[in-house]
């Protein structure tokens, strides 16, 4: 049996019929082909599939699509306006916070949620906010620096 849901993704409202066992991650990747949301563990451990659900970062592998009915979802594809990068994206590019890139969308979305709530976080707050998003490439040093740089740039 499929469920009819309405979900706003990156500002666009979608009416969708989804099977009960479909996760939000599968909905984004497989149905809507928004593949910037990455699949790393399907157990909520790695953070590669992070999206903002009504503004809060969540692991989309642990959200059923039916649970997102009526919600607002922001994925990494919804951040830049045209060719103009969001200040956090620009900071990740400039600081060298990107290596393999697999954790990057999640890292950026978590940073966005942090800076919206706390525009001037200290280093410990940044590290705490990033602690659900694993990165094997960077040692987090340049990611933390990117968030610090973005905090200065954001209005």
């Amino acid at each position: 049996m499929k469920h009819d849901i309405q979900v706003t993704i990156n500002g666009t409202s979608h009416q969708l019929a989804v099977p009960a066992n479909r996760t939000l991650l599968e909905l984004l990747r497989d149905d809507l082909r928004l593949t910037g949301t990455n699949k790393g563990c399907e157990a909520g451990d790695c953070g590669a599939c992070t999206v903002l659900l009504d503004g809060d970062p969540v692991p989309s592998c642990l959200v059923l699509a039916v649970q997102a009915d009526g919600c607002d979802v922001l994925t990494i594809e919804g951040l830049a306006s045209g060719n103009r990068l969001h200040p956090i994206q620009q900071a990740f590019v400039d600081t060298g916070a990107v290596q393999c890139g697999y954790c990057t969308p999640g890292m950026i979305l978590v940073s966005l949620a942090l800076l919206r709530k706390n525009p001037h976080p200290d280093e410990a707050e940044i590290r705490g906010a990033l602690s659900g998003n694993l990165c094997r490439c960077t040692g987090y040093q340049k990611i933390v620096q990117a968030v610090q740089a973005a905090a200065k740039e954001m209005p």
Partner: peptide, 9 residues
């Protein structure tokens, strides 16, 4: 508990 992402859900 867990991580910030898990705590949000």
């Amino acid at each position: 508990l867990g991580t910030p992402l898990v705590r949000n859900r």
